[in-house]
């Protein structure tokens, strides 16, 4: 079974093979190093002209990729750590996301910015964040964050080869070594073509007692948690959209109507986040069907500490989700 990282590598390799307009830009991405997380390992050897290491200037090379996209290429940018997206923000917000709309649909910007996000590795405050919420709701871009139940390579390939709009592609770094658990997925919905929502259930008949909506790295916590709760005979559905923005809203409402208790969890910090927007959207549709208010879990609003013990306290994990579920059930 292939790992999440292998899925990314395969997605990149397939895209480079299928379309010669695909180029990959980023820091330290060429062989033998192959990128800080090895996502591009082997690719510069196979495609030396199209896998290119850049100077350390995230804003600059993101802008370069925007220019290439405007002139017929399908660039993929790797930002070494998602925390460094702050350096690209002007290019993302005022260039990449603006051009198609501002130029009245006369240009396309088929560009994918991939980046690892998330903590759990003791890297500390500037290398552990989940900053995708800064870009959620921004007109003109899609924010994608597949979990390890998704076929991550297929989604990446779709973003690179088929989607003509810019995509911010978030990879939770703790998912990289995990096997892609595509076999345990029980349902896939394609409300947004190319960006499926997958769902997982720990029961075979009846209704869920609780439905958890989550994305990205949260699958690492939720897959074993569902097994554990199965022993306790608690029926849980976990739903993972791969597209965070726009939201596959009909799909989420569909799962929301199947049960009376909802939990939304994410790794990023609490406050004006994915969960708050989803909760509002869902309340509009579900308010009179819910037995209790929607529970939202996110990281504490603080810098992410480096020390393992402190970092664990700050971030969402299976134990915290489990506690929240039991509290919701009581």
């Amino acid at each position: 079974m292939a790992s999440y990282l292998a899925g990314i590598q395969a997605g990149l390799e397939n895209a480079l093979t299928i379309n010669e307009k695909v180029v990959v830009l980023g820091e330290d991405i060429v062989d033998p190093y192959g990128g800080a997380f090895k996502a591009t390992k082997g690719l510069s050897t196979k495609f030396p002209e199209r896998v290119i290491s850049t100077p350390i200037c995230e804003g600059g090379f993101t802008g370069v990729a925007v220019g290439m996209a405007l002139r017929g290429f399908r660039p993929v940018v790797e930002i070494m750590f998602g925390d460094f997206l702050t350096l690209c923000t002007d290019q993302i917000v005022n260039h990449m996301a603006k051009f198609p709309g501002m130029f009245n649909g006369q240009v396309d910007v088929p560009l994918v910015i991939r980046t690892p996000m998330g903590g759990g590795r003791g890297y500390g405050a500037t290398h552990s964040q989940s900053l995708e919420k800064m870009f959620l709701g921004l007109p003109g871009i899609r924010v994608v964050a597949p979990c390890h139940i998704h076929s991550v390579g297929d989604i990446l390939q779709h973003a690179i080869l088929t989607d003509n709009d810019p995509v911010l592609f978030i990879e939770n770094k703790l998912l990289y070594p995990l096997d892609q658990h595509t076999h345990i997925l029980i349902e896939q919905t394609d409300e947004i073509p190319g960006y499926p929502t997958v769902a997982l259930k720990n029961f075979s008949s009846g209704k869920p007692d609780v439905t958890v909506i989550a994305y990205g790295g949260m699958s690492r916590e939720l897959v074993p948690l569902l097994d554990k709760l199965q022993i306790d005979e608690l029926n849980v559905t976990a739903v993972f959209p791969s597209s965070l923005w726009p939201v596959p809203f009909e799909t989420l409402v569909h799962y929301g109507t199947q049960c009376e208790r909802l939990v939304i969890c994410e790794e990023g910090s609490t406050g004006f986040n994915w969960g708050s927007e989803l909760a509002v959207l869902l309340y509009d549709k579900l308010s009179n069907k819910l037995a209790a208010p929607i529970v939202r879990l996110a990281a504490a609003s603080q810098v992410i500490p480096a020390a393992r013990r402190l970092e664990t306290e700050a971030l969402v994990n299976a134990e915290k989700i489990e506690n929240a579920i039991w509290e919701l059930m009581s």
Binding site: V64, A65, G67, M68, L70, R71, H95
Partner: peptide
């Protein structure tokens, strides 16, 4: 940077 990317393209 955008113009530079165009030149690269």
């Amino acid at each position: 940077p955008v113009a530079t990317g165009m030149a690269f393209a």
